[in-house]
Design a protein around this nucleic acid. Sequence first.
DNA 1: AACGCGCCCTGTCCGC
DNA 2: TGCGGACAGGGCGCGT
Length: 271
Amino acid sequence: MPELPEVETIVRDLARLVPGATIARVEVLRPDLIERTSAGDFARALEGARIAGISRRAKNIVFDLGPDRLVVNLGMTGRLLVVPEADADPPHAGVRIRLSDGRVLLYHDVRRFGRLEVCPAGEWARRDGELGYEPLGADFTPRVLHELAGRSRVAIKTWMMDQRRVVGVGNIYASEACHRAAIDPRRPARSLTPDEAASLHAAIRDTLLEAIEFRGTTLLDYRDASGDEGGFAARLRVYDREGEPCPRCGGEIERIVQGGRATFFCGDCQR
DNA sequence: AACGCGCCCTGTCCGC
DNA sequence: TGCGGACAGGGCGCGT
């Protein structure tokens, strides 16, 4: 589900709502959501901790608890909601994190592809180091994109979604960025010229920034921390628009499958 | 090493 | 109306 803009929206919401709060009690309703430790250890590690800050790394929501980090990955259908006690028991509730002021940080996930884990800050720093460039970071330059892409024969759209290279771009924004850059998503990554790499670099950033502005894309499941939908779906240029005219050239938008995932593009103007 | 694929799980939608 | 199959925003582990 959520890609960088959706996770960023949730993180910004949470950064306004929960820093300074203390975790009173944790209830794990679906133990299969907890990564690496038992549900009991997970709850014990959180109870009594104070939330010092919230940040995003790739598609992960990271809570700074002092010595530890709580890391939440939403998978396809995960939601992280701040709700009053009365709303804390919906169907598909996965983990209830009760704050000492009475509010509940509720992890909700229909498909349960998401994961939560608590780990020492040092351990998280090591894993952070294995993730790729933040596409909105200053060190992600057109040259970096061109050099990294030059090492791979994978189709550029699939390449963009690999979190070891560039993080945060998922299936929706990969199609959207290829379209904005007018690049055929089937091209081998290493076939991009420096100019094409620069235009893809700009397209990735522009797409993600605009999607953040509109609080993300809700196709079906995505909700922000208040439970509201994102507004970017209406602005998608190709994703989920098979058969519609290309907004740039009027050609027909096609749907193909790459690596088992749907890709949408215009065969007329994406070269 | 790099890459492609199946799988995890539930709900929705579409065609028959 | 009912039913079976395809498909859905992610990421991991496997085999080649």
